[in-house]
Amino acid sequence: MMAGPQIVAAVVLVTTARPVRVCLGFLLGVAIATVAGVVLARGIFALLGQAFAPGSSSDRGVAAVIVQLVLVGLLALVAVKNVVKRRTVEPPKWLGSLMEASPRKALMTGLLIILLMPSDIAVMLAVGANLEQHGAGWTAALPFVAATVFIAALPLLLYLVFGDRARRAMPRLREWLTTHSWVVNAAACLIFIVLILAP
């Protein structure tokens, strides 16, 4: 969920004039967006009912298999896209505008960066499908939400622990993440593919 521009945005926000307030706004946006995305995805699969819910292999119908294969296909496409475009990855232009971000702009960035990224949408659909498959409520996804927010908070935590040394290291970290985020993205997609296909 946080690979690519998502974690780079968190790193950029640590280098702003008021990093703690701005980063807390970003983390709140990430948390709200992740919860909303999972609840929405869970709701979609609940509305579609058992005909579309990817349940156990013995009781699922053709429609459920199709939904499962579509989710796997979306995640596989995202993984392949990341591998194919790894050499031509350019950071989005809006990342540069985050250097002057206010807490409100950081909050909106956190919301939009999760809700509008195709890879994050595919992951949240996979989580929603998994919740429906196991008959679990959205609260069962709280560890997933917590892990997403924790990863988003890592740059801020490093800043709070190491202070200016961490802040000086953030530009180098941003460069590394920009050039290597495809590995993390592809690996995350593969993990969710395994979760969907597991009985």
Rank of each mutant, 00 (worst) to 15 (best):
H134D: 11
I191Q: 02
I66N: 03
Q68N: 06
F144K: 03
R60P: 01
F45E: 10
P155N: 09
S119W: 00
G49K: 02
P19K: 08
A33F: 04
G135M: 05
F192W: 11
G55F: 00
V67R: 00
T139F: 13
T109F: 08
G137C: 02
V67S: 15
A41V: 05
L24Y: 03
A186G: 07
L71S: 07
F192L: 12
L24F: 02
A166D: 08
V30S: 09
L160H: 02
E175Q: 14
I44R: 02
V149R: 03
M2H: 05
M170G: 01
L157G: 15
G128F: 07
G43P: 04
G61A: 14
P91T: 07
N82S: 14
G43L: 05
L160K: 08
V80H: 07
R60I: 03
F52A: 15
P103Q: 11
A9Q: 09
A51V: 08
I121L: 12
V89Y: 14
G128K: 09
R174H: 09
V161A: 15
A136M: 13
L27I: 05
L48K: 04
V149Q: 08
A101P: 03
C189D: 09
A53S: 13
V72D: 02
V70F: 13
C23M: 14
L48W: 05
S58W: 09
R87C: 00
V78L: 09
L75V: 06
A147G: 13
V83D: 02
P171S: 04
L195Q: 03
L77K: 06
G29E: 12
P92W: 08
Q133T: 10
T148S: 11
I151P: 00
R18M: 02
A198W: 07
A188P: 00
I7G: 03
Q68L: 14
A147R: 04
G73R: 02
L197V: 07
G163N: 05
R87G: 03
F45S: 04
L47A: 13
R42Y: 05
F45G: 01
Q68K: 10
L173R: 01
D164R: 09
R168S: 11
V89Q: 14
L112Q: 12
N185I: 07
T16E: 08
V72C: 10
L47Y: 02
S181H: 10
A106V: 04
N130D: 08
V78M: 14
A126T: 03
L195C: 02
I151G: 10
V39C: 11
L115G: 11
A41T: 09
V8A: 15
L142N: 09
A3C: 11
I121N: 01
I44V: 15
V65L: 10
A106W: 07
M1C: 05
V20W: 00
A17Y: 00
V65E: 10
G37P: 06
L154R: 03
F26R: 06
A64G: 12
V127Q: 07
L69W: 10
S181C: 13
G49W: 07
V145F: 06
T34W: 02
V70C: 12
L69R: 12
L27G: 05
R18G: 02
I32G: 04
